[in-house]
Design a protein around this nucleic acid. Structure first.
Lengths: 214, 214
DNA sequence: CGCTGTGAATGTATTCACAGCG
DNA sequence: CGCTGTGAATACATTCACAGCG
């Protein structure tokens, strides 16, 4: 909670690790552990204690010297840093196989994410429902976004449609996108975008196998 | 092709970008472009020309000064660097929704990846077939891996089963894993692992929205 | 004492800037 | 000339190491 004078920009690396720490804290709290040191947390997270203390120090002083961190306190601090104290509504673009898998992904709800609408352009799918979530024409997205109050979008569509879907959703006011399409999306500076490209990850693995083999 | 005396270790960042360059080269070649400069490629890739020249310089001298890079040459060099000159066989652990989506993901085949077997532990699924790919008991994976010659595995299973599935597949000889389960997998040094955690990506977005003005 | 919080040191990735070849 | 290839410079991320508080 301590607000520092001139905070540095927080890197994605740090933010990603905070999510990991958060997961661990949830788990060890379930196991009844009440206090944890940076060294113990580092052990679980697969990093080192200095990394953890440094990451946390960007946001405040959450520990007690000589003691460690109170799990409940640190967990709720990180929850608040990540903006997870409230629920987030998500729209899903793409009623294909990947969209279907994501729509039924149980972990979203557990982490406070709710898929409130699905968009597609296929008339055969529009009007349908998956697990109680309606599939709408992407051309109506502006209205639906407004009505539902969604703030995040997941793009789970083929590459060629990705930019167009992005632009529709952007026009509807969405500013944060998780893109599964294997395409570079051109964004404006107000937009936050993360890409997940499965083929690129696999190619990272083939590179490793190929180059380490003598 | 020039082999240097003492190569530095290539970072994942560089390898990831090589995949991106490769994609772009495929596309511009389809568009009939035969020569490309690092500046032009950087424009497509959303980076800068020095980054591209540096990335490529770790592997050889593929360009011509004053001219640029011949698209066909650079493409095939990167293909070879990434180990994509041959096909790779992949097994999929997890016959759930995500597994189903991945099994029908068309881009895999386009990029030389073939899913040759699916593993699960649910007797209701074992014995079935998806798009001609058989679903086997994970306890039989060692035999199936040997028979198919698979070298990569995708873990598309719930968190609690991930470590166990990893160990079965590892015992079967797989050394490269793409893990979608939201769990840290404990690996041995011979193993290459990449993680894709959808919730962590979404939390990166909520952090950005939450912190960039509330 | 034990462990946090943090400046300083180190390690790594990116970008600059220019020599040198086509 | 134009653009590559690359050492040097810079920016950034991680780790060290220890002062200082509980």
């Amino acid at each position: 909670m301590t607000v520092k004078g001139m905070e540095p920009r927080i890197s994605d690396y740090t933010v990603r690790r905070l999510s990991i720490y958060y997961r661990i804290l949830e788990e060890i709290e379930r196991n009844g552990i009440e206090v944890v040191s940076s060294a113990a947390l580092a052990e679980y997270a697969g990093t080192n204690s200095a990394q953890i203390r440094k990451d946390l120090s960007y946001f405040g002083n959450f520990g007690k010297r000589g003691r460690g961190y109170r799990v409940s306190v640190l967990k709720s601090e990180i929850k608040s840093i990540l903006g997870l104290q409230r629920k987030w509504k998500v729209v899903l673009a793409g009623a294909g196989n990947l969209g279907h898998a994501l729509n039924s992904y149980k972990d979203f709800a557990r982490h406070g994410f709710e898929i409130v609408a699905i968009f597609d352009s296929d008339p055969g799918k529009i009007g349908g429902t998956w697990d109680g979530v309606a599939i709408h024409d992407i051309r109506d997205c502006q209205m639906i976004i407004e009505r539902t109050g969604a703030e995040l979008a997941i793009l789970a569509i083929p590459g060629p449609s990705a930019q167009g879907a992005f632009e529709s959703l952007r026009a509807g006011g969405i500013r944060a996108f998780l893109n599964f399409a294997p395409r570079k999306i051109e964004i404006d500076p107000q937009v936050h975008l993360r890409n997940v490209d499965i083929t690129i990850e696999l190619e990272g693995l083939t590179y490793a196998l190929h180059s380490s083999r003598t």
